[in-house]
Amino acid sequence: MPLIRNGQPLADPWTMVADDAPLPAGAAIVSLARWLRDRDALLGRNQPIGIVLPPDQAVDELGPDLDRLGVVALEFRSFRDGRAYSQARLLRERYGYTGEIRATGQVLRDQLLFMERCGIDSFVLPNDSAVTAWSEAIREISVWYQPAADRRTWVVAARHGASALDGCAPAG
């Protein structure tokens, strides 16, 4: 399945590794469970490491280790399951995570914009036509009624300029 990051299609440098599979050479993404079990060994490889954060696990689980993780993959097990939007914002805004946040699972065209606003910057898409649609989907709306992880200027700031927001420190 095609991967895009920051709007560009690219060959996936990461390998998703099942819990019972041996680790390949190079960058690997493992489950949170495997990370919690084999943390020291995984770090000891001195290879890029990422994890899959399931929607029912708190972002706090990763807290102190976040800067060692090259990618946090979030799961949209169904497009109806919106927990990963909150996880993404917490990663970016609360924990200041600057690595890749990847959307996996049911990643539909009409949700890409919401995902992107919440700080998700890479998307595993179902097919190549979805790659073309990405750039359209992301531009359909240009007015933001709320600040989010993308730091686009929200309407209240645009209406009043930065001076009106003095004393309102940005979150995160």
């Binding site: 919106g82 939007y85 009624y145 989010a148």
Partner: peptide, 14 residues
Amino acid sequence: RQWSTLHPEFSFLP
């Protein structure tokens, strides 16, 4: 109303 409109985090609540 404005804050909640097309809120990116809260459009797929339980």
